Simulated assay, not measured.
Amino acid sequence: MAPTIPTRVSSVDVYRGFVMFLMMAEVLEFGHVSKALPESSFWAFLAYHQDHVDWVGCSLHDLIQPSFSFLVGVALPYSVASRLAKGQSFKDMFGHTLKRSLILIFLGIFLRSTHREQTNFTFEDTLTQIGLGYPILFWLGFRSFKTQVIALCTILVGYWLVFALYPLPDANFDYAAVGVASDWEHNLSGFAAHWNKNTNAAWAFDQWFMNLFPREKPFIRNGGGYSTLSFIPTLGTMILGLLAGQWLKDEEAPLEKVKRFGLIGIGLLGTGLLLNWTGICPNVKRIWTPTWTIFSGGWCFILLAFFYWIVDIKGYKKAFFWLMVIGMNSIAAYIISHTIVEFIHHSFQIHISKTYDQILGLNYESLVRGTAILTVEWLILHWMYRNRIFIRI
């Protein structure tokens, strides 16, 4: 019997739409409103969760990239089943996988190079990180559950060892050169110091690797502490998504899937908190520590359980249609949010008023401007949805 094309799971599109909306909503710039209203705990809370934490910890904004990566893994079993149903061979599918990976890597570099004097070769953004690990993820999609789990554990333990065995900076280390004060409040001490900003194994790798490419000036550090090698533990996040996608696709009762995802999520959160608390491995998104893979993976399982329950089980699809519009065109949403924000803003200034965003006063200027931009971006995606225009790689 020929394999059948699997039914699309609406909750996955909604979850992806939620993640992309959080990214697109950066234009609301809650931080500016919070600075204008320093006594407001409400705006301070929103501002905190619309930005990345300085080093150890987690905000809602920090969950965007792991969720997007996790959902790549969730979608893989459905993509493979669909291609098998169309009669494609493993060779053909793997060739497409390599092509997709290269497109993601080059698209990430292209978007990071806009408004620059030359190509900005950087490999720590969401698209390039996924592209670097995707061929391995695809290969694991055809392996057994045991092999997938062994691969995940090998990645987490091996990446932990790389950092743990890398020597700590000596007394003569020039912290200023790498953009980190020696007394920075977020510097970790003791064994956890192996995961400090721009003094770790991944930073050392990038000092060599990033200088293999043409640059305006030699690479010394990444201002945010991000690194190329984070694609390895990001692959761990995608493997967690692959496991979730396989369970989501099987014949288990829907509510049992929700329970499974919830319990796994809670277990991963607890494990991540324990690893961070004991100092075995800190929970740092910027360098994607193994603890971050585990901890953020816990949140991903919980969010998937929530959206699967409320969208596919309870049937509230219409209420989340606005997110589905974004989620079904996530690549388009990503490109739009990185390319035409200023164009939309200037268009409002030209055709409405140069001060259109001050209608509620200077305190809420960024909020009005961001809402206008976000609305136009969504309307573009809605037009694409209605006309069945979906960008696929």
Rank of each mutant, 00 (worst) to 15 (best):
T199H: 01
L188M: 14
A193E: 06
A192D: 11
A181N: 12
H194D: 08
M210D: 02
N172C: 01
W208E: 01
A181S: 15
T199Q: 12
Y175V: 03
H194V: 08
A201Y: 07
F173K: 04
Y175A: 05
A177Y: 03
N211F: 04
N196G: 13
F173Y: 15
S189T: 15
N172M: 06
H194G: 04
E185A: 11
D206I: 06
A192E: 11
F191T: 07
L188Q: 10
N172K: 09
A201P: 03
V178N: 04
A201V: 06
D206F: 02
G179A: 11
H186N: 14
N196M: 07
G190V: 15
M210T: 02
A176H: 13
F173I: 09
W203C: 09
N198Q: 14
A201Q: 01
Y175P: 04
N196A: 06
F191E: 06
N198R: 02
N196C: 08
G179W: 00
N187W: 08
N187R: 15
N211C: 07
L188P: 08
N211A: 10
A192T: 12
L212H: 07
W208Y: 12
D170G: 13
N211V: 14
D206T: 07
A171I: 05
V178P: 02
N211W: 08
H194S: 08
D174V: 08
W208A: 13
G179M: 05
N200Y: 00
H186I: 03
A201M: 06
